[in-house]
């Protein structure tokens, strides 16, 4: 399989560096606006839940961070795979940039879920609940990807070896998603992604969707910011970058 010609434009560090530089402020503005509006709407305007009371407001943080953590892993695995197969260094740079963001979102999802679990389920942490276990495994996959990279002096070798780990770990993402359907779990089943009518009141659904969009923009904002730094790190000896950093056009 050959990649289309335009695709190779995205393998060119100067092009991507400029593209990321142009996009990051916009992504940042959109992300911050959506998150502020969504948080105010969800935490202040939306009514309390009939069963859970005010505790349900984790609904505006936890599912979103969990969703972004899985999306981040898919981004990391796909770009690492592309980098491995077509030997595109920039694709590896995207994977490296996604890993710490994904790990942070995974940690947020685990911590927020734990804080919610205490008042609703009656426990902070349940060893053996499949959803909790596989999400924890996701955190360790991100961390082991970063640890494995750190074990190599040579960056190209680190790119190649860690890419295989990233691709293999992607198996975990559908397992997390379907864990609540395949096995008995303490974690509740899906609310949004099931195909019959969504079992969430509209008052909750709107801020929920605003927050999920906001966190998604937030992820890509952080990803491109990190990618720029990663390109600077990788291309620091090149002429175009030195020109760009001194204000000239590359």
């Amino acid at each position: 399989m050959k990649l289309p010609r335009w695709f190779h434009l995205f393998g060119s560090p100067p092009f991507v560096y400029r593209l990321a530089g142009a996009l990051t402020p916009w992504l940042g503005i959109i992300a911050c606006t959506l998150l502020i509006v969504g948080a105010y709407w969800g935490l202040v305007v939306a009514p309390p839940d009939a069963v859970q009371g005010e505790v349900y407001r984790i609904l505006y943080i936890h599912p979103q961070t969990a969703y972004v953590s899985m999306m981040a892993y898919v981004v990391m695995a796909v770009t690492a795979g592309i980098g491995y197969i077509w030997r595109i260094k920039l694709a590896h740079a995207v994977a490296v940039s996604a890993a710490p963001i994904g790990a942070s979102f995974t940690a947020c999802a685990l911590v927020s879920g734990s804080l919610w679990g205490r008042p609703t389920w009656g426990t902070y942490w349940e060893w053996g609940d499949p959803r909790i276990m596989f999400e924890t495994l996701l955190l360790f996959l991100f961390l082991s990807y970063l640890a494995l990279r750190a074990a190599f002096e040579d960056r190209d070798k680190a790119d190649r070896v860690s890419a295989i780990l990233a691709v293999v770990g992607v198996v975990n993402v559908p397992i997390i998603h379907y864990s609540v359907l395949w096995w008995n779990t303490l974690h509740q089943g899906p609310t949004i992604s099931k195909l019959d009518s969504p079992s969430m009141a509209t008052e909750f659904l709107i801020p929920f969707l605003i927050m999920i969009t906001g966190f998604t923009f937030c992820f890509y904002w952080l990803l491109l910011s990190r990618l720029k730094a990663e390109i600077v790190e990788r291309e620091r000896d090149t002429r175009w970058l030195q020109d760009a950093l001194q204000g000239g056009r590359p």
Partner: peptide, 9 residues
């Protein structure tokens, strides 16, 4: 075990 339904009182 909480269910997946959310609605105001």
């Amino acid at each position: 075990k909480h269910d997946e339904n959310y609605m105001p009182p």
